[in-house]
């Protein structure tokens, strides 16, 4: 009896005759935990996720190409993307391609993110690995033949 009263005062739950917490309350608490867990996962994925990185680097590279003159070589540090691609078991050398005035960045087996660049130059790219866990994307902008 004393134990039941103590539990009641601590948890403010209505205990049944056996002193157990009713099933409905357990389900209610579990549903709340599930909901807030889903929210937390969403916020974490949005801030650290693949999609945001793809979007950021696609726009960065497109703007760099747009501001470049023919003959320019652009080097972009993509070590962060290299780490994300490795986590998703995706080959970094397949992460970037340039076609039809569009740069596409892909870090997983999903579709990736593309962004247009308005300059009509030829773009060539190659990835180099100067150190372990470091990757550099080298882009050459050449005039159209």
């Amino acid at each position: 009896m004393k134990k039941n009263k103590l539990l009641k005062s601590l948890t403010n739950h209505n205990l049944n005759k056996k002193g157990n917490i009713p099933l409905e309350e357990v389900i209610f608490v579990l549903l709340n935990i599930m909901f807030f867990s889903m929210l937390f996962v969403f916020v974490y994925n949005t801030s650290h996720g693949v999609f945001l990185s793809e979007k950021l680097y696609a726009k960065k590279i497109a703007l760099a190409i747009d501001s470049a003159k023919p003959g320019t070589q652009i080097s972009v540090d993509i070590s962060e993307l290299y780490g994300i691609a490795q986590e998703n078991e995706f080959d970094i050398s397949d992460s970037f391609y340039f076609k039809d005035n569009q740069v596409n960045v892909k870090l997983s087996k999903e579709d990736g993110y593309s962004y247009n660049y308005f300059t009509n130059y030829q773009v060539e790219s190659v990835i180099s690995f100067p150190e372990e866990d470091q990757a550099i994307l080298n882009i050459k902008v050449r005039p159209n033949d």
Binding site: K55, Y97, K99, Q102, K106, G112, Y113, S114
Partner: peptide
């Protein structure tokens, strides 16, 4: 007014 988007093209090498 261009915002980019998910890629719907297939990658070609």
């Amino acid at each position: 007014n261009y915002r980019g988007g998910k890629n719907s093209n297939e990658q070609t090498n």
